[in-house]
Design a binder for these strands. Sequence first.
RNA 1: GUGGGUGUCGCCUAGCGGUCAAAGGCGCCAGGUUGUGGCCCUGGAGAACGAGGGUUCAAAUCCCUUCACCCACCCCA
Length: 429
Amino acid sequence: MADLRAPRGMNDLLPEDAPLWRHVRDTAERVAALFDYRPLATPIVEDAAVFERSAGQESDIVAKEMYRFEDRGGGTLALRPEGTAAVCRAYLEHGMASRPQPVRLYYLGPMFRYDRPQAGRYRQLWQFGVECIGDPSPAADVEVIELQQTLYEQLGLAPLGLGRLGGLTLRINSIGTAETRHRYVELLREHFRPHLATLSADSQRRFEANPLRILDSKEDARHTAVLDAPSILDHLDAEDAAHFAQVRALLDALGIAYAVDPRIVRGLDYYARTVWEFEPPGAGGQSTVGAGGRYDGLMELLGGPHTPGTGFATGIERIVLNLRERGLERAPAAPDVVTVPLGEAGALAAARLARTLRSAGLVVRAGTPGRSLRAALRGADAVDARYAVIVGNEEAAAGTAVVKTLRAGGEQRTLPADEVAAAIRRGDW
RNA sequence: GUGGGUGUCGCCUAGCGGUCAAAGGCGCCAGGUUGUGGCCCUGGAGAACGAGGGUUCAAAUCCCUUCACCCACCCCA
């Protein structure tokens, strides 16, 4: 085998993967358009500061997972680890605050994280994401959730009970604003401090870094201190609580099923209030298919004015993984026609005819000249073509072609070359 | 980043110290009489057994290192 391979954690998308991928991407863009979201494509690299300022230097994403490099001009660039910060940068750079608010945007493209790969976790991953910027209301959160839910629904992953393995479930939480959250975090520290010694090493580390994470620890899931921990939902301020109540009321009104899960947290400080995740049933390791949240604090970190925003990102690979687990593959592409050139004159006439057929919109795979008729038809069958169009020296001289069906009985007709396209387009035999 | 598992032709797999200068199935290419597919038959190409080092008279088979993938944790999509 060749000694060169794709970089670790990065994968080739082969032709056989294309139908499913295209379907997912097309569906995502169609659903986004349905909600009047517009595409925004940002560069795959950004000034590293875009992510360092937004996510924070100590966040895992920046500290451990970001591809960072100097460019020749001496600047520090980063392969984008996520989409939201770049979208916000573009919002500010292009003065989108002067467009009608909120500004509704979506993006689709590869992200990069230097992380240890495992199933469903890659160093290059594709994300589709949506951002609704400039609307602080619960309605914006719910619109974005509804969009995400609609996407999964149209792909066959939701609602509950669809497909062999069941659908994705929506779990939501409110983590309050930065101020209420800081108060709650202190409360949590006081709660866990007496139990520190009995918690796992990971949780002890989180105690300093981010006590919220202790709540969804796998190791300490049944630790009494975790089970008895105060819920952030009991410590929201009046406005936070009203916002969250509105979110739930709207979801109820739309008939979108969800579970409130106070253990859903976010590592980054700019998040505020509503956060959510979509998970497949029997959630295991890298299971979250898509997650979102409100990020009212983000624009200011990027040097802009206070601007509320809410959005989600969903991993294309994880969607594809779930579709495959449920047997929701897409049919591979097959050509309409394979040409079968026989002899030198036949080869010329076959090439001309192929050109005519393509201009009529037919997908034509050119047969390899020099093969026997037998081999050529075997080849046509192997690629699952609908028709073989045989052009030998006899046909070339007569200005005809032999059109043979490959799907059913193998009926064939000799037709004038200029009638082949129409006959195949009619496709009634 | 931590712990564990796996690694033989494009794919799946046999072999587990000597008879392996590696076998089979799928796929690919070519034939099965002169211009006809899908089944079948025949033949062919294709791997020095992930890579490097070691043990041994002898290694795909044992040991070490390394790389990659997988699983769990961490983190996240």
